[in-house]
């Protein structure tokens, strides 16, 4: 249960990262910071401004998307280089600056976001689970379904998929690539922010929370295959379950090692990832 709940939020994180990489060819080091931003916004609205918990999650997601869109519009779009390493370096710079801005504003002390759910765990036989976790799981699943509908059944989704396949052809066919990039980055950032806003109340909010999230997101994307959103969804669940069962049955010390061992194994056996067709290898 816990693994499934984590998996659903990992999937949101992974999709956001794989989307930005697949369509924009950007190794997005700020991804974890958008996760942290979502969590801090939820904290700001719920704990500091007294906004309703559910509204705060929506607001946090919206702010994540707006900041993401602004970042694309004011910085990424205006870059004179498309070199993948230079853009990555830029994202590293932004990551460092964003993380320390969070610390400057909210301090290094971890914050707890109060939730309106009952603290008493629900008990089903031997399993006990908090209502908050059930809420997070349900929301994350709804978002995952909504996202796949968006990609597969809307004009925006079609334009994104065609840009992913071939940017130049898509542009020739009348797709406004600039708009698609902005939408992609906003969507990717929004997904990270909503994951942060959902997990924030379960865990704690601290300036360095994004680092682990980035690491996990990268792992998920590799597991699923770069640029594959279906792969990232499944990759998220696989990673969470591997962590859960690996540490449950072998040793919790090596919990984080399992994910990496699985990745190394996947790369050796199937370098293009579990779910991506071979020609997508970047």
């Amino acid at each position: 249960m816990n693994g499934v709940m984590l998996g659903s939020t990992y999937a949101l994180l992974g999709i956001g990262l794989t989307l930005v990489f697949g369509i924009m060819r950007i190794v997005n080091f700020t991804h974890g910071e958008f996760y942290a931003l979502g969590a801090y916004m939820a904290y700001l609205f719920v704990a500091q401004l007294g906004v309703n918990f559910f509204a705060a999650i929506l607001l946090a997601t919206a702010i994540g998307m707006i900041v993401g869109a602004a970042l694309e519009f004011f910085i990424l779009r205006r870059l004179k280089t498309t070199d993948i390493d230079s853009v990555m370096l830029l994202m590293i710079g932004l990551w460092i600056a964003m993380q320390n801005t969070e610390q400057l504003i909210w301090g290094g002390v971890a914050k707890l976001i109060p939730s309106p759910f009952a603290q008493q765990p629900l008990v089903f036989g031997p399993v006990s689970v908090s209502p908050l976790k059930v809420f997070v799981l349900v929301t994350a699943i709804v978002l995952l379904i909504a996202f796949h509908l968006l990609i597969n059944h809307t004009r925006l989704g079609l334009a994104m998929r065609s840009t992913f396949q071939d940017r130049d052809v898509a542009s020739l066919m009348g797709v406004n690539v600039g708009t698609i990039y902005m939408a992609t980055f906003a969507l990717g950032s929004g997904l990270a922010a909503v994951a942060g806003a959902l997990l924030g109340p379960i865990f704690l909010v601290s300036p360095t929370m994004g680092d682990l999230a980035s690491l996990k997101a990268f792992a998920i994307v590799i597991l699923g295959g770069l640029g594959s959103t279906v792969g990232a969804t499944i990759g998220g669940f696989v990673l969470a379950l591997v962590e859960e069962f690996g540490s449950g049955y072998v040793s919790a010390d090596f919990r984080d090692a399992f994910s990496f061992l699985v990745i190394v194994a996947v790369l050796i056996l199937r370098p293009q990832g579990l779910f991506a067709p071979k020609e997508r290898v970047g």
């Binding site: 910085i75 205006r78 870059l79 004179k80 280089t81 070199d83 230079s86 853009v87 370096l89 830029l90 590293i92 710079g93 932004l94 990551w95 460092i96 600056a97 964003m98 993380q99 320390n100 801005t101 610390q103 400057l104």
Partner: peptide
């Protein structure tokens, strides 16, 4: 500058270099 601001300047310097001197 304060400790956090030092890091923010450090990050901003990287961004500016990529922006103006992409190579």
């Amino acid at each position: 500058a304060g400790p956090e601001v030092q890091w923010i300047i450090y990050g901003a310097a990287i961004v500016l270099i990529v922006f103006f001197l992409p190579n």
